[in-house]
């Protein structure tokens, strides 16, 4: 139990750091560390497959993509700076992001502690009442049977959504390079 609560405390620290940090790169790294902690919590709940999936996707794949996008935008910002377009963003260079009031992020520990105190008073009795509900004990089938036999229609829907998102990304990131070349000529 102690190990479990320590993991939750570490997760809270990582997530608050990822929200409060100004540098987007450090925020993405902190979120990846938070994903690692989430996967460890899943292991303590005896859910190893979900933990491995979380570790491989959310802690490895997503930070790479987010950091790649940040660096891409950062490179564009540096190009803007070289060309003299300084009015695009507030802080150019590595922290390319809009100018905003940092106090909103700095007061996050205060807000979270306030919510924690209020939640301890109001949420805990509600959750205690929820925990007294009767449990279903006889439905714990194998994960393979649940995924392949019980949720095969879900799998078809997931493949459809993946195809749809591939099409959507193609349409979102479609830049009209050919037309510009023709117009320049």
């Amino acid at each position: 139990m102690t190990y479990h609560l320590i993991l939750f405390a570490v997760l809270l620290i990582f997530i608050m750091a990822s929200v409060m940090l100004q540098n987007l790169l450090y925020s993405a790294i902190m979120l990846a560390l938070g994903s690692v902690t989430v996967s460890l919590i899943m292991f303590t709940f005896s859910a190893p497959w979900a933990g491995v999936f979380e570790l491989s996707v959310c802690a490895a794949l997503l930070p790479v993509l987010v950091i790649g996008t940040i660096k891409l935008i950062d490179a564009g910002g540096r190009q803007d700076l070289d060309e003299g377009n300084e009015d695009n963003c507030g802080s150019l260079g590595f922290n390319i992001q809009p100018v905003e009031n940092r106090i909103k992020f700095r007061i996050l520990p205060l807000v979270v502690s306030l919510i924690a105190v209020l939640g301890w008073i109001f949420f805990i009795p509600f959750f205690e009442a929820l925990s007294k509900y009767p449990y279903m004990n006889s439905l714990n089938r194998d994960l393979g049977k649940i995924i392949w036999a019980g949720r095969s229609q879900d799998l078809i829907a997931q493949i459809t959504i993946l195809t749809a998102i591939a099409m959507a990304m193609k349409s979102i990131l479609h830049f009209s390079g050919g037309k510009n070349k023709e117009s320049k000529e």
Partner: peptide, 23 residues
């Protein structure tokens, strides 16, 4: 899932949800 002794079903739903998050 852990509270209702249904961890495997909750794992299957969690994997789907992680996939949706990535998308």
């Amino acid at each position: 899932g852990a509270a209702t002794n249904n961890v495997n079903l909750s794992q299957a739903i969690a994997i789907t949800m992680i996939l949706m998050e990535v998308i």
